[in-house]
């Protein structure tokens, strides 16, 4: 998604001269086009994420539109207080971009994974977290995020284009990707593509929803109606169980009085203290397509 983001950023920055791009010394083989297009508006702030975030808040206070970029774990956790106080509490128009959410950086190891970012940031005042589910989805999510003149986080991952899904669908925080009647599947980020693949392999009539924003600013009615109809919900996220999409969906359904048979596939950390590719970690957490097939079989036939 980084390539798609860089392409969108280049255009957006050329159209908006008040946009400043700050990077925490990352972006090799990815952001060169943004750097070339933006000139002096592209600033390498060095490996100092805390300073970069507050610096951006100061720039936003002056009416500029700063974007802060690093890999997801570095841009979220080190400067968490700066995000909470200087950006969130002041509702500054600062966009925070984290690449490689979840297990995205695979074999780089645990220090490079971001499994709790959405829990942390979605709980902060005024912070809206945006998460595209595929490469093709990056542009519309970025457009939605940039249209919001407040504090936001963009979690980028690695996702191919799903088959049989309308990639040109207009942005909404809750979007139906495929319609079905047997089960409701709700996911955030590209791990949702594993769920789509699982449904396809099972030839399952699944009502699949992509959630692209936490907290969800507008739930619409389709998801609750779907859950009330199927009475079976699977939530999929490459994020820890606590504070992620599962809790948001469960709370929403409970407040709507919708009771369902529930399954939740989430990141389980490092259960064997071994490291590998993103696919390896997804498998250990039961987030790969094959594991999700088993979950769906149990949910629909159990």
């Amino acid at each position: 998604m980084r390539k798609e983001f860089a392409a969108w950023m280049e255009t957006y920055a050329l159209e908006n001269q008040d946009v400043i791009f700050l990077t925490g010394d990352l972006g090799f083989m990815a952001l060169e086009n943004v750097q070339a297009a933006m000139g002096t508006r592209f600033v390498n702030a060095g490996v100092s994420e805390q300073n970069m975030i507050s610096l951006a808040a100061g720039m936003a206070q002056q009416g500029l539109k700063p974007f802060c970029y690093s890999i997801a774990p570095f841009i979220v956790f080190r400067p968490a207080e700066q995000i909470r106080l200087d950006v969130g509490l002041h509702n500054m128009n600062v966009k925070i971009v984290g690449n490689g959410g979840g297990y995205g950086y695979g074999i780089m190891g645990a220090t490079h994974h971001a499994l709790e970012d959405l829990a942390v940031l979605s709980s902060f005042p005024n912070l809206r977290c945006f998460v595209p589910y595929s490469n093709e989805d990056v542009k519309s999510v970025c457009q939605a995020m940039s249209a919001y003149a407040g504090s936001a986080y963009l979690r980028l991952g690695f996702g191919a284009a799903p088959v049989g899904v309308d990639a040109a669908q207009a942005y909404a925080p809750v979007r139906r990707l495929t319609a079905g009647h047997a089960v409701t599947v709700v996911g955030i980020g590209p791990v949702l593509l594993n769920a789509l693949a699982a449904c396809s392999a099972l030839n399952l009539s699944a009502d699949v929803f992509a959630i692209s924003e936490l907290p969800v600013s507008d739930w619409g009615t389709a998801l609750a109606e779907s859950a009330a109809r199927t009475h079976k919900v699977l939530v999929v996220e490459e994020h820890v169980q606590r504070g992620g999409l599962g809790e948001h969906v469960a709370h929403w359904l409970l407040t709507r009085g919708v009771h369902v048979k529930w399954a939740h596939a989430f990141a389980r950390g490092y259960p064997n203290q071994r490291y590998g590719s993103q696919a390896y970690h997804q498998q250990l957490s039961g987030l790969d397509a094959e594991s999700l097939q088993a979950v769906l079989r149990e949910l629909t036939h159990g």
């Binding site: 008040d18 400043i20 805390q50 507050s54 951006a56 100061g58 720039m59 206070q61 002056q62 700066q82």
Partner: peptide
């Protein structure tokens, strides 16, 4: 919370490169 002020001030000061103020 200590340690925030100088970054904020630097951000405001640095902005002038772009705003012309």
């Amino acid at each position: 919370s200590l340690g925030h002020g100088l970054s904020l001030a630097a951000g405001i000061a640095f902005s002038q490169r772009y705003t012309g103020r």
